[in-house]
Computed example of a mutant assay.
Amino acid sequence: MADHYEVLGVSRDATTDEIKKAYRRLARQLHPDVNPGAEASETFKSVTHAYDVLSDSAQRQKYDRGGQGGGAEGQNFGNFGDIFETFFGGGGGSTRGPRSRRERGQDALIRVELDLAEVIFGTHRDLEVDTAILCDTCKGSCCQPGTAPVTCDICRGTGSIQRAVRSLLGNVMTSSPCGSCRGYGTIIATPCTTCSGQGRVRARRTVPVDVPAGVDTGLRLQMPGSGEIGPAGGPNGDLYLEMKVRHHDVFSRDGDDLLCSLEVAMTGAILGTTVKLKALDGDVDVELRPGVQSSEILTIKDRGVTKLRGSGRGDLKIGIQVVTPTRLDHKERDLIEQFAARHSAPAPSLSQYQQGLFAKLRDRFLG
């Protein structure tokens, strides 16, 4: 006689769940209703007998000690419930009762576009959503007002039909959803004309949304219960808001910091100056020290984006770009030449030309 563990394809220390999974897998392949061949039928008997023995703790212990653990002759295939569960989704003759018409509504996804300025402190939006709402006529009952569902006379309210099926094991009872009421156990004889018996209708509604500060492109916010209502007045699904922050011509974002470049005249860079910068949340006075260089980064504390998690704000980082004049009159050129004669410039090195100004600004911004 073949070893029961080998028949099921499991190890001798397999758990009960592993034995059950192995049996179900083999039963789906070998059951006579699926595989009517004579060889498959004999193998199915061996598989079922092996499972009968190994699924019973007392018989398994006896088998492991060298006993037979139940004879193949006259064994009664007592684990019918597992066979029924494998093929019919439940034990023979058992029913789960009628299913409910009320189901949870689907989730919805809306993309929300924001300006960078709105991200700094957050904003409020009233979003128009095309979704399913409760039918105002039947209030989710699916029936025309004054009427009610009636018990299905085919399944008598159980939602399922039981049938006797002949198999190798004899007559077994199977259960399947009632085709007349589709498993609900009741029939709506007079459906609501407004919603066609669905208990909900399509409509536009306004959803108020407080978008928190600090959101960024790709972030999704979940609003539980703000999605569409389910059939027959079932609970609402969730509403997801996917953020997209529009491009800004002046400012860009690095985490909670705001980045920008500031062009400064050569004279202002030499002598020092104060520049009024129009930031996203008001003007900022930027003081430039005498001799400020291109690609220097000035940091204005707490003028960046409000942090989404935690407290406080990021910084405003300003990259300096010194603008050299390209057209000079004779007097201006004479002055520059006199300046150059009194201040010898350092000899240029190759490393100074290996990356441009914007690359330097990027490197300093980010590192």
Score class of each variant (00 low, 15 high):
G356P: 04
V322T: 02
T131C: 07
S167K: 04
H247A: 13
G304E: 14
I83K: 00
Y23K: 10
K301C: 04
V305G: 07
L127R: 02
G199M: 11
T131Y: 00
V53T: 14
N35V: 00
G199F: 05
P212L: 10
S180P: 00
R309A: 12
L30M: 03
V119S: 05
C178G: 00
L116A: 11
A279C: 05
L127I: 10
E332C: 04
D115P: 00
D315P: 10
T16P: 06
A108D: 10
L316G: 02
A345Y: 11
G122P: 08
R111M: 05
S160R: 07
E296K: 01
G74H: 11
I318Q: 03
I187V: 07
P231N: 13
T186M: 08
P325K: 13
D210G: 12
D283I: 02
I133L: 10
I19T: 09
E296Q: 11
K62V: 09
A58S: 04
E337P: 00
D254H: 09
E39S: 07
F87Q: 06
N76D: 04
F84E: 12
L298W: 08
R65Y: 01
N171K: 11
G69I: 02
I318V: 14
T95V: 14
P149V: 04
A58I: 03
E42H: 11
A38S: 05
I154K: 03
F88Y: 15
P191A: 10
T151V: 11
E242T: 13
L239E: 06
G199R: 14
G234D: 07
C143F: 03
D315M: 14
D210L: 13
C143Q: 05
I120F: 01
T86E: 13
T158I: 01
V201H: 02
Q338V: 01
R25C: 13
D82W: 15
G291F: 09
A14E: 08
A213M: 10
E128L: 14
G37D: 07
S55R: 13
A164D: 10
T43I: 03
I318S: 06
G282N: 03
G367T: 03
E85M: 04
A232P: 06
A213Y: 08
L316D: 10
G319K: 12
R104N: 06
L308H: 14
M223K: 08
G234L: 10
F339W: 08
G268H: 14
T137V: 05
T190S: 09
R25K: 13
F88T: 04
R101W: 12
A117S: 02
R253L: 02
V47M: 03
E242V: 06
T267A: 09
